[in-house]
Design a protein around this nucleic acid. Sequence first.
DNA 1: AATTGCATGTAAGGAGTTACATGATTAA
DNA 2: TTAATCATGTAACTCCTTACATGCAATT
Lengths: 192, 192
Amino acid sequence: MKVKPDPPPARRSRTPYVLLGMLLPGPANGYELKRRIETSVGHFWQESFGQLYPALALLERQGLVRQVAQEGARAKARRFAITPAGRKALASWVMTPPTPQPERNELLLKVFFAQVHPDAVNAHVLAAAQQARLYGAQLGALREQMMAGLDGQPGLPAWLATLDYGAAAMDALAAWCERTQKALKDLPRQRL
Amino acid sequence: MKVKPDPPPARRSRTPYVLLGMLLPGPANGYELKRRIETSVGHFWQESFGQLYPALALLERQGLVRQVAQEGARAKARRFAITPAGRKALASWVMTPPTPQPERNELLLKVFFAQVHPDAVNAHVLAAAQQARLYGAQLGALREQMMAGLDGQPGLPAWLATLDYGAAAMDALAAWCERTQKALKDLPRQRL
DNA sequence: AATTGCATGTAAGGAGTTACATGATTAA
DNA sequence: TTAATCATGTAACTCCTTACATGCAATT
């Protein structure tokens, strides 16, 4: 007889590992970490402050990051550096195969139910195509910037690869939208 | 002075709308709805029983579905049908532009940190390519089945479009994986 | 008779977002 | 001086998954 069931087996957050990885180039405070995330992996990963600060505090308690002194101005800000234990934890996580997270796509859901209102869904698809093209162009521009500004950095090929992923995904999405718009044109208009 | 802050503005679940949509072909119980979801939109949307049953109960209280009698065996099962109000609610949701949900991609995160252990990350990418090709093939087979078995159904073009999305995404993913494997080969091996 | 599948739920807890609260520092 | 930005956190709440509990129906 069990009063308390076993704790569920740790659906683990990836937030701490992202923070550890973002500390690789050098120490930073929480605010800076947030910006590093936005400007480097922001197109496929985000963290909110509500996640970030508690995770950072936990990392410190675990000895995976340690506070370092901040010279000069802004000395109040809590700057953290990754520790050797933190590097080990990060490496161990990187080496673990990614757990496939179930996809959820609201646009596809609406396309699936397109019979309910074909014209409205077609408008969603058109908007998605425009967004995809715009976003793909932005990623391309960002790619140029990174290649120019970070030439020689050892991590550059990997960073570019993540941008390529985004660009390829946007291309594929835009192309699918065009095919889908044609396909939805023939849907019978039915009323509720 | 506020003791109780305003309730956050309803990050709304899409579960009820999926259920309403799945009731369009006809009445079903919760168990059947789960299976309809798995076999139709399962490749881009899933619901667990823990979500499904409470949502279904709420829909009934709201008058968007109503219980209908089940003739014959399995008469204990609670079968539901969508109501006119339910159709209206579904249509209203379908017509609302999809809210873009922030993507999160753990594979890309590991690729971004590939410098930490390039060989392990390359193995992840290779595995992803294989999975993508396998899954793409499965979607193609499913597409053939649907075209053959559901020919003439008014919703068929839209249903096929969602399968096409999955297939195109898998193609793009597999192609990106191959490019990325080549790009990661040149990453310098550095130790912790 | 026993096992598998059908069927309906609840409990507990993690993950994550949004909004709020608070203050220091810098720039106009 | 005032506004914007930097900076750190907490509170409340939603979403969702996993695990558990329970029982009936059909199959072997």
